[in-house]
Amino acid sequence: MHTPLHPQWLVCGRNLKLIEWLKGFGGDGIVLDIGCAGCWPERFLPGNCHYVGLDYPETATEWYRTAPDIFADAGRLPIATKSVDVALLLDVLEHLDSVDHAIEEIARILKPGGRLLIQVPFLYPLHDEPRDFTRLSRHGISNLLQRYGLVVEQCLAVGTPMETAGLLTNIAISKVAWDWVSRKSPLMPLILVIPFFVVIINLAAKVLSWLAYDNDFMPFSYQVSASKPH
């Protein structure tokens, strides 16, 4: 994953801003990680934070084999109103069949002044099917949060146009190779040249990104920090 040989090398490092936000939380408040999976954010929170991992029963037990602190549906949180300091919704929103119910619940449980961190894909393939329902632009995310009284502080577009194009190309090539293998196609020997193409695409996308003007025209994901007004 950390070398250009990997089809998703261009995704590496995307969590650096999230980690910065996590490390910056002060106080000894409650951090609720909704859709926690392996609970990776806990490693970067200050030691005095009280981390609580929550996940959907099917996702935790059948897909990821994880043990959250709480089993629940993001649209019906068994959490007291105005009791949570920080809510995390990292790579989860696209898997919820009702994003409105989830954001409404998060707005309810957050304390005044509480924060919500979201990471969500935009230009990215279907994954974890059949529970992949939604893609929202930055405008859609802002509109969704505002409907429930949450204020967007930062919305970062992750991935330059060239990085996103390179990432999607590499994923498409890898999917073709996987199909050749799974179907025992006579084209299987061609997979030997795929690492060469992956490296070239990764490096070309990175160099062209450095040469291009900065813009958020086609990111592969968004990272959002929002708050609940006092």
Rank of each mutant, 00 (worst) to 15 (best):
His139Ala: 08
Thr66Pro: 08
Met162Phe: 15
Asn143Cys: 10
Gln8Phe: 03
Asp216Met: 08
Arg183Tyr: 07
Ser185Met: 06
Asp28Leu: 02
Gly27Asn: 07
Lys111Asn: 12
Val193Ala: 15
Asp55His: 03
Trp9Phe: 15
Asp73Met: 14
Ile171Ala: 07
Arg131His: 12
Gly159Ile: 05
Thr81Lys: 13
Pro121Ile: 02
Ala205His: 05
Val84Ile: 10
Gly47Tyr: 08
Gly13Ile: 03
Leu144Gln: 04
Thr66Lys: 13
Ala37Trp: 03
Leu208Gln: 02
Tyr148Thr: 04
Pro229Gly: 14
Met162Gln: 15
Arg108Leu: 09
Arg14Cys: 14
Val176Glu: 11
Ser227His: 12
Asn215Thr: 11
Ala74Trp: 01
Ser182Phe: 04
Ala212His: 08
Leu190Gly: 13
Leu110Arg: 01
Trp40Ile: 05
Ala67Asn: 15
Leu22His: 03
Phe122Lys: 01
Arg108Val: 12
Asp214Trp: 08
Asp216Val: 11
Trp21Leu: 07
Val52Met: 06
Asp69Cys: 13
Gly29Glu: 14
Asp214Gln: 13
Ser227Asn: 06
Phe133Ser: 07
Pro195Gln: 11
Leu88His: 00
Leu88Cys: 00
Tyr124Ser: 08
Asp91Ala: 07
Leu167Met: 12
Leu156Ile: 14
Ala74Gly: 09
Val152Asn: 03
Cys49Gln: 13
Ala80Trp: 06
Tyr124Cys: 05
Asp85Ile: 04
Asp132Ala: 05
Ile70Thr: 07
Val92Trp: 03
Pro78Leu: 01
Gly140Ala: 09
Ala60Pro: 00
Tyr56His: 14
Gln154Trp: 03
Asn202Phe: 02
Leu90Ala: 02
Lys228Val: 01
Asp179Ile: 13
Gln8Asn: 10
Phe196Ala: 12
Trp210Ser: 06
Val193Met: 14
